[in-house]
Write a protein that binds this DNA or RNA. Structure first.
Lengths: 141, 141
DNA sequence: GTAGTCCCTATAGTGACTAGAGGTTCAAGA
DNA sequence: TCTTGAACCTCTAGTCACTATAGGGACTAC
């Protein structure tokens, strides 16, 4: 109880500058300070930061997390909003998995057919140069 | 033959500012200009841009593409470098797919268990608040 | 000649941090 | 009590791969 930002960073495995950044954008409330202006945290901050960290690991963006946190702060509301956010994220993830599977197939083919000879015969280069490969939104953003 | 940047954008489905950006960072050579300083492109530029576009769709970053292009420009070298780049990218993609599958499972569970009641019983919020979920690097970067 | 579309450069903004400079505070040992 | 050195502070700028905006100039069709 009542520890420094470095200790919070160690406990949650979130880097110190990232914690300050979350405070700056309003995901974490400004904590009390020592006389010398150093931040002091307690159990609540640890839980809230763990929540944020886990949500980030699940790929929720900051705005989604902001919405989820405000739900958590008002536990008497309907959770249909949380449900909607999670469903949207699930759909994104499933789409991403499908894209990456297509991508893996193409990369595997490229690698398999590359005999590591000269570039002139290289399938990796050839495949990339072949403009017939149209597939929207494969790139990870 | 000999068309504007807008026409190149239409043919390759790469946006105009993106084309100028690729020129600025040296992926595309500076093209000839009209008297009024407008860019004029030909077949070579189209092929090179299609190569870049495809590589980006496959998730190669700009530096990898720079390396691949320089191989393409010198077709007498060994293509082991290209092979290595493609293999590294394949490994990344496979790791990413594994992470996303884990993620999907967790999201599916969250959504399934959310009865859309009050937030107090919401599994979405609960799951995120549960700090026992340690899994490294699930987040897409 | 003029309207309207396209093009030009240059700069700033995006998201989610990360790195650095330059200075201050804290905790532990002598 | 003093000193050392790690940890802390703020502020600014940089990352990646674009994207958007401002304020203008060029080109094409009528």
């Amino acid at each position: 109880m009542d520890f420094s930002i470095g200790e919070l960073a160690r406990r949650t495995e979130v880097k110190v500058p990232t914690i300050r950044y979350y405070e700056q954008i309003g995901l974490l409330p400004p904590p009390p300070r020592t006389e010398g202006q150093q931040r002091r945290y307690g159990k609540n901050a640890t839980a809230r930061l763990a929540f944020i960290k886990h949500a980030r690991e699940l790929g929720f963006d900051i705005e989604a997390i902001r919405a989820l946190l405000s739900l958590q702060d008002n536990p008497d509301q309907s959770c249909s909003v949380a449900d909607r956010i999670a469903k949207a994220r699930l759909a994104e993830v499933e789409e991403r998995i499908a894209s990456l599977n297509a991508l893996r197939t193409e990369l595997q083919r490229m690698v398999k057919e590359c005999a590591s000879g000269r570039v002139a015969e290289c399938r990796v280069i050839d495949t990339l140069a072949d403009s017939s490969h149209g597939h929207g939104r494969l790139v990870e953003t």
